[in-house]
């Protein structure tokens, strides 16, 4: 089981829930299962999110492996100047 925390707007979309437990071996699977667990999040997940894994922010690396030991935080998609 992965522990996934939500940040930013995502919390509002999930009806105030900030933490989820979902299955998944990588970011893609985690996001897919999260969308099933919380369908309200699906539109945001489709739009694109960033995922912080142990402090490292991933924007697109869907195949990044995940495990129960990881700190996983969903953040809004970000861009720079």
């Amino acid at each position: 089981m992965l522990k996934v925390k939500l940040g930013g707007t995502l919390v509002n979309k999930a009806g105030g829930r900030t933490e989820f437990e979902v299955e998944g071996a990588n970011i893609m699977q985690m996001l897919r299962n999260l969308g099933r667990t919380c369908p309200e999040l699906e539109p945001m997940l489709q739009k694109g999110v960033s995922v912080a894994v142990d402090g490292q922010i991933y924007r697109d690396a869907m195949l990044q492996p995940l495990g129960p030991e990881n700190e996983i935080i969903l953040l809004p998609r970000m861009a720079g100047g």
């Binding site: 925390k5 940040g7 912080a52 142990d54 402090g55 490292q56 935080i73």
Partner: peptide, 9 residues
């Protein structure tokens, strides 16, 4: 633990 969520390396 940063104010925006993730823990800093």
């Amino acid at each position: 633990v940063s104010s925006y969520g993730p823990t800093f390396g």
